[in-house]
Design a protein around this nucleic acid. Sequence first.
DNA 1: TTCTAGCTATTTTTT
DNA 2: ATAGCTAGAA
Length: 701
Amino acid sequence: MTEALNPAQRQAVEHGPGPILVIAGAGTGKTRTLVCRLAYLMGRGVAPENILLLTFTRKAAEEMISRATSIVGDDTGRLTGGTFHSVANILLRRYARHLGYEPGFVISDRGDAEGIVNLLRSSLSLGGHGRRFPSRRMVINVISRAVNRCVPIGAVLEEQYSHLLEFQGDIESLARHYQAFKREHQLMDYDDLLVNFRDLLRDHPGPCREIRERFVHVLVDEYQDTNPVQAEIVRLIAVPGNNVMVVGDDAQSIYSFRGADFRNIIQFPDLFPGTVVVRLEENYRSTQNILDLGNAIIAHAGEGFKKRLFTSIGEGDKPLLHPLSNEAVQARYVAGEIKKLLDRGDSAAEIAVLFRSGFHSYKLEIELASLGIVFEKRGGMKLLESAHIKDVVSYFRLLINPHDSLSWNRLLLMLPKLGPKTAAKIVQAARDSDDPFSALEEYPAPASWGEGLRELVLLFQGIRGGAMTPAAVFGAVMEVYRPRLEILYADDYPRRLRDLEQLDILLGGYADIPSFLDDIALDPPEADGFADGAAGGSVILSTIHSAKGLEWDNVFVINLAEGRFPSTRSGFGPELEEERRLFYVAVTRARKRVFLTYPREVKGYGGFDGGGPSPFVTQLPHDVVRVAGLRPVPVYGGGDDFRVSSPTSAGGGFAVGDRVKHPFFALGTVIGKTGKSKVVVAFDRHGNKELHLDYARLERA
DNA sequence: TTCTAGCTATTTTTT
DNA sequence: ATAGCTAGAA
């Protein structure tokens, strides 16, 4: 074994038969442990095809398998690894018929789901009569949550969406029709992949036996982010031999919004009696100062496995907290610091900027670009969410599944003079026919859009039959689509054309269309050029969710401001706790340096949207961060933001000797005045600071 | 039935 | 700021 292990890791790696739960704090060598476990099993003669490795991303699985392979030798291949969804996809293709599906079913994404709900809503004429019907997005969220949590829709509404309770009947009916629509059109959404996989194992003894015989050893990474359906899948596969290892950290559970329940990991020993629990607490990633910050963040959390990370790496630099006056200044500051790091010789690949939501980095992206710093953005908008990509993908989907009404609808609506009503009629005709292509050919069309329809039919006649490579199909499709693109998106079609060129390159790597379609649904490429570290390392801008499991020397966490992080959309209690864990995940990505920033004011859609330090920041003990110089920068926008200026600054101010309270610096005494609205305060635990009363939220204590 | 101009609510996070 | 939606014109 080439990778060194500590005793706890070794215990996990060399565990014999039976269930084992590994509680692995951030940076404690979780991946190394899993890799060695794989290698250990293979070294003990377990055939790779008898191992199933379930991970959070496909990339993680590939990396672990290749590292394990390099330890054991060339015993590669046959090991099955990937996300729950991708493994479910593979097995469901094989056993589809047991569930009443064809093996050629198509995976539908969120956009499809919204399209279906739209169609159904109008065909069921819901929302037409008076009341404001919940948005399709909401409807999808409710349905998905009910499925993933294995609870009825009514329960989800009561628990999370009580304001939609009056629509319960309509949503339930919509949900039933949605299920029926997917079956009729050979579609499976993300939830179906899991649920159908679970049903296959639970209700179909033949396939279940084969799958169990195949996967004698099951390993699951990031178990804290599994939902009840996934937990059931693991149980159903692993239960006869109980050779199951799950690894995770309840403190890093950040996916409850898609049904994950961190209690899964806490209850694992109950599910598998005799579970051996191993805790990994020695951190090999971060300096002690960073861990102190992480421990301080998570100290406020309620239930969970108690653990305290420690390291022998050394103290390192203290995390820096830098308040900035607004987002533009924040962006300039962060870009400037990144420049300094780069000039100093740090590798771009060792710098990451993390934030709560995709759009939080817009200003920074502009700033970095103007400094000529190359970056790669993770999370946020995906390539296939853009309209032009969906357009092109629709052609491909119809080749595989000619009954895909959604795609027909999409293509037909691109034709001028052809609107939703006509499209619906044509789609109906296509659906009722055994051969939708010839149904279209025969459809009585008026001159206005008949030409467009004929063109479409002609195109499909050319590319049908499955003899062409995906790249060749793309070429033929573009002949027809390109003129349409130029009309449809007259203002910015060159940009979209560039995306399509990227798609063309991507397609070059595929031998067949079905695997291309599966991949764009299950492993979607990112929006901006989907470079995958192309430049041999660039600065990473990422949502915290997408940064899970990764690490860098230097980590910036920006927009730690009220109203941004925690997001205003998140509520109290458990939701707030999850936001806190998110903050924990963010800072524990860092090896050497952490920079925390927040703008004192944030502009939202209309006026001001919040700003000032996040409660997570103000709750930190004073000694875990170093606060950067508090020199106020002029406020832009000015105006009537009552949250930024303290009530006292308007009414005359403070006198020397007053006891005051600051949201971050806590208690102090005013020891001097240096201007008409500036005071010097001696803080009990932070020393002297000069504060501008227009900006600092200072209160009388 | 389609198109368009103006209105509105909207902004987590992802397989 | 923007996309998605509604109401009214063509």
